[in-house]
Structure formats: C-alpha cells, structure tokens
Simulated scan of single mutants.
Amino acid sequence: MRTRYRIERRRLLAGGTGLTLAAVAGARVPLAQSLDRVSFQTNWRAQAEQGGYYQAVAAGIYRRHGIECELRQGGPQQNPAQLLIGGRVDMIMSTGFQALNYVRENLPFLTIAAMMQKDPQILMTHEGNGINSFEDMRGRPMLIGSASRVTYWPFLRARFDFTDAQIRPYNFNLTPFLVDRMAIQQGFVSAEPFAAMQAGARPRVFLIADAGYENYQTTIDISRRMVEEKPDLVQRFVNASIEGWAQYMAGRNTDAANALIKRDNPDMDDAKIAYAVRAMNEHGIVKSGDADRLGIGAMTEERWIRFHRTMADAGLYPRDLDVRRGFTTRFVNKRVGLA
C-alpha cells in the first residue's frame, strides 16, 4: 500500500459532476440520456493490477452503464486519499487500511467494493535454499520497504515471531536479491517474480494473504455524500467496474485495455501484463473466497471485523474502533461478474 496513514483533515468539496439519472440501481441507462461523468484515481502507474478498470473504459462498459469515466493514473508523487478528501476526485482505488483510517480520523468516506479478495503482496526467496515456509524465515534478514513496515509487517511479526532486527532496507532494486541466494525480499506476486526470472533467478513465492492476512486490495473508496446523493450512479459504476474485471481476468477482448495501460505507462509490455494476469488468476487474487459465491468485488462484515481485530492485535489500531463505519456492502455481493 502506497498511501500515508495519518490523514490531514480537509473540508469535503462537492462530489461527482454530471446528471444523476433516474434508473433502477444497476440497470443500463438509455443511450439517449446524458452520460454521468465520474473521475476515478488509481493508486499507482498503469498496470495489469488495474486492468479491470481499463477494460471497462476500453470496452465501453462504463458508457453502456451511462457513465463517462475519467480514469486517472496514480504515481509516486500522488496521495489518492488526500485527493479524495480534498474533493479533487470522485472515487479512488485504495486498500482496506484506508477504511480503518477513515473511521479512526472520523472522516466521511468509506469503501464500497474490493476487487481483489487477496492482497497480492509476497515475500520472495530463491528455490532450493532451504526456506520452504514463513516459519523458516524466522531470524533471517529480509528486505522490507518503509510502507510495508506499517501494514503487513506487524501481522507477520505477530503471527510468526519475526523481529524488527530482521529488517533490511528495500529500495525497489532487485540486485541485492539476485546476488544473495539466501535473500528474502518483499514484492507483488504479479511483478517481482517475473523480473527475477527475467534476470535468471528461480524465485519462490510466499503469498502473505495465504498466511491469514485478510487485507482487501484494489478497493473503491468514495464520500458518504456521493453515496447518499447519487446511489444509482454509484451502483452503476460498481457494476460496470466488476464487469470490466470479469472480462479482463478471463482474457476476453483485452487488447484495447492493454493498449491503454501501455499508453499510460510505457514501462509495461505484453510479457509483463500477461505474467501479471496469469499470476493473479493462479493465486486467486481477484476470484476466490467470497467472490466465488457473491461476485467480484465482494466484501463481508465478518471479514472486515476479523481484519480489524488482527491489525489491532498487531498494535496498529484501537481495539474499540467501529470498523463498520468504514465500509458498506450496499453495492456489492449481488453476484455481478459470475459466469
């Protein structure tokens, strides 16, 4: 997660622009009516991990739902949460931690969908070096970035008796990993293993979500004001996004979406994108768990409560935080995107 965790309070400005259309929630809007304009800010530069949103744009899914979506690319100098709080964007792509932050800071925002059921963050080492589980990493040096130290690291420390003394600085440079066969470093299941293989390594991947880390990823966050004033528009945006993700993960006519990704981020190429999609499918990042029965984007109160309890046990949040104020399942769990 690449957002800050202490959020400056700012006055909420007006929400989305455009006309609110009188239609049943989730229904497609007649083409004769004007399109509602919605701005959506991603949390990083364009990549396959955002592919469902790009698919919904490229395949005209948003437009079929009566929406003109302005998809804004993120980057290292941007803080999507601050853009949302400042009223400069209608919706943002975020993570489960942000919902807890909204509650802790008493801010009028919430999470309305989670496109990734599993957080794609991993620890990665080399095959054949005797490290075969998280337990085998106990006491060993690990390359961990600063942002990770206040998200999944406290979970790993509590779950596997890791210590802060194991941490070594990680500067998003693969060289230290490549030259040390005993190295352990952080990464994303859809990115760093591919880069390591391209450099001749044989990485072994440990998905942190499979160890019980229940953080929702690639969430959609929005102001309470927009939820209250434009629920039909919000429902149509969520449904269109889910349809985009279903198509993208199935590989159905995704060339145009991938072209948009490569246009926005020239560092992406077909091989990187193909690997990322394959890895997300193999590890159930988007389609697994609750999404298998409730549809892509699914969230449950039970999981949110467990996630908060886990992170409170790790010392990151107050135990009496009412996590239910940070999300709503009103717009998901409708089996949208299921075959």
Results as ranks from 00 to 15, higher is better:
Arg11Ser: 13
Leu12Val: 15
Leu13His: 12
Leu13Ala: 09
Ala14Glu: 15
Gly15Arg: 06
Gly16Lys: 07
Thr17Arg: 13
Thr17Gln: 15
Gly18Cys: 04
Gly18Met: 05
Leu19Ile: 11
Thr20Val: 05
Thr20Phe: 01
Thr20Glu: 15
Leu21Cys: 01
Ala23Val: 14
Val24Pro: 01
Val24Gln: 06
Ala25Tyr: 02
Gly26His: 03
Ala27Pro: 00
Arg28Glu: 15
Val29Leu: 15
Val29Cys: 05
Pro30Lys: 04
Pro30Trp: 08
Leu31Trp: 10
Gln33Cys: 08
Gln33Lys: 14
Gln33Ala: 11
Ser34Trp: 05
Arg37Gly: 06
Arg37Pro: 00
Arg37Val: 07
Val38Met: 15
Ser39Ala: 07
Ser39Ile: 02
Ser39Glu: 12
Ser39Thr: 10
Phe40Met: 00
Phe40Gly: 02
Gln41Gly: 04
Thr42Gly: 09
Asn43Gln: 10
Asn43Ala: 11
Asn43Glu: 08
Trp44Asn: 09
Trp44Gln: 09
Ala46Thr: 06
Gln47Arg: 11
Gln47Lys: 07
Gln47Cys: 12
Gln47Trp: 10
Ala48Gly: 14
Glu49Gly: 11
Gln50Asp: 12
Gln50Ile: 08
Gln50Trp: 13
Gly52Asp: 08
Tyr53Ile: 05
Tyr53Glu: 07
Gln55Phe: 02
Ala58His: 03
Gly60Phe: 09
Gly60Ile: 06
Ile61Cys: 01
Ile61Leu: 06
Tyr62Glu: 01
Tyr62Ala: 07
Arg63Asp: 13
Glu68Ser: 12
Glu68Trp: 03
Glu68Val: 04
Glu70Trp: 09
Glu70Pro: 08
Arg72Glu: 12
Arg72Val: 12
Gly74Tyr: 13
Gly75Leu: 10
Pro76Trp: 05
Pro76Leu: 09
Gln77Arg: 15
Asn79Cys: 09
Asn79Asp: 13
Ala81Asp: 11
Ala81Phe: 11
Ala81Pro: 09
Leu83His: 09
Leu83Arg: 12
Leu83Tyr: 03
Leu84Gly: 08
Ile85Arg: 14
Arg88Gly: 05
Val89Met: 08
Asp90Met: 10
Asp90Glu: 11
Met91Trp: 05
Met93Ile: 12
Met93Arg: 14
Thr95Arg: 00
Thr95His: 13
Thr95Val: 06
Thr95Ala: 11
Gly96Val: 04
Phe97Asn: 08
Ala99Ser: 15
Leu100Glu: 02
Asn101Thr: 03
Tyr102Gly: 01
Tyr102Phe: 15
Val103Gln: 02
Arg104Met: 06
Glu105Ile: 05
Glu105Asn: 06
Asn106Phe: 01
Leu107Thr: 00
Leu107Phe: 14
Leu110Lys: 14
Thr111Phe: 01
Thr111Asp: 04
Thr111Pro: 02
Ile112Val: 11
Ile112Thr: 03
Ala113Ile: 01
Ala113Val: 03
Ala113Cys: 02
Ala114His: 00
Ala114Trp: 01
Met115Ile: 07
